[in-house]
Design a protein around this nucleic acid. Structure first.
Lengths: 221, 221
DNA sequence: TTTTTTCTGTAGCGGCCACTAGGGAAATCG
DNA sequence: CGATTTCCCTAGTGGCCGCTACAGAAAAAA
């Protein structure tokens, strides 16, 4: 489904499950994925509205009509950028939640990885989802990213409830508050990375943040 | 000094410490402070760039030239808004740091007040300084607000160092990390308020956050 | 080769941006 | 009263915004 984001949009080109036969006309003169990555970096650095279409075509090194032919419009391009960002850079929390044995271990790892990802040299600092549309006047873009943030915290909350159910966390744990607390710490780390904090600074910050998480099944009261 | 921000800009109007004699020509037909407050709310809600001059004149209920005559330009108006915001809404941390006996008590109070201020009904949620220029393409505006944020955390760090010196906090306290941690929590609370978190949700979050602060002079190790 | 299909560059669309010139109205001063 | 000072409204500036029509170039298919 939704094969309308591939290279060719000609409905008759790809015949079934065949090995992607070459489309008929003149092929695109640039690599779509490379251009998308350039757009991602631009949006990540400057945000949705502060990145103009002419900014995009400059960093992607393509003409304006090529951008519209390949990606639809600015909004669709941004949606695709957010999707790619989520897979490539923004999924460290999801991965930690899925792979670590407990919510606490997952958060410990996620905070450590956040410190690294948010300060990686040669890349924009901080999180695209948090900052790219912070004060965007396009309400759809705002709402879309807001939903993404809320979903992340909801996923963490579910994981905490699981641990409470299995006894890995105390029975009186306020899962919602603990999830929101952790989300707030990550969001604050992203803000501080944007403001120039170093990886080491974020790591020491995260170490303090994680120390409130109750160990094993000892009740908090 | 710098009396150029008052109502009248006529250099000969106010004679010394006199009771502000009325300026000569036709008086302004709107109340400057009221208009400034309206501009503050608009910038707070939508951010610097997403608030256009025509947005401003609409909510301030004045003409475009009146805005420029009274406030200079959009940038100067925003600067003044930020100054007023800092005094009226954004100084709860400073006040807590100044009035509470210990850094811990101050942070406890500041986090509680942040939960209230960031979710006050009838006002934009979250912090203007954090979000109003998040992805602003004007570098001066960005830098100015960034400095303000860093200064806030630096003030907290100084207060923590004082408490370490007096023994109110353990000698091995990492003042920088603890200050950045607390700043990150406040920044995350602001983000969550923008995303719709309620006051109660922020308060339970803050309660967790403050629980990592060491009590009295007991060493952490 | 001719035909067909698609991409690419130029040039320009209407619309909003921040901002300002200039004339007339309104209020105070002498 | 007249003179002076200041404000406010209308209208418009050039510039950038996202976006697109059109024509020609380029490559595959027949």
């Amino acid at each position: 489904m939704s094969s309308d984001e591939g290279t060719g949009r000609s409905g008759a080109a790809r015949t079934g499950a065949g090995p992607a036969r070459r489309p008929r006309g003149r092929p695109r003169s640039f690599d779509r994925e490379t251009a998308l990555e350039k757009a991602l970096l631009a949006f990540w650095e400057h945000g949705y509205e502060a990145t103009s279409v002419s900014d995009l075509t400059r960093v992607m090194d393509i003409g304006v009509p090529s951008l519209y032919a390949a990606f639809g419009d600015k909004r669709s391009l941004f949606d695709e950028v957010v999707r790619v960002y989520g897979v490539r850079y923004g999924s460290f929390t999801d991965r930690a939640l899925a792979e670590e044995p407990t919510a606490r271990a997952a958060v410990e790892r996620a905070l450590r990885e956040a410190a690294a990802v948010y300060t990686e040299p040669g890349r924009p600092h901080g999180c695209l989802v948090l900052h790219a549309a912070a004060n965007c006047s396009n309400p759809e873009v705002r709402q879309s990213l807001r939903e993404r943030r809320r979903a992340d915290i909801a996923a963490l909350e579910r994981r905490i409830r699981d641990d409470v159910a299995t006894g890995a966390l105390p029975a009186d744990t306020d899962a919602g508050a603990l999830a929101r607390y952790t989300g707030a710490v990550i969001q604050g780390m992203s803000q501080q990375a944007r403001d120039g904090a170093s990886r080491e600074e974020l790591e020491s910050l995260a170490e303090i943040a994680v120390s409130v998480w109750p160990r094993a099944g000892t009740p908090t009261g």
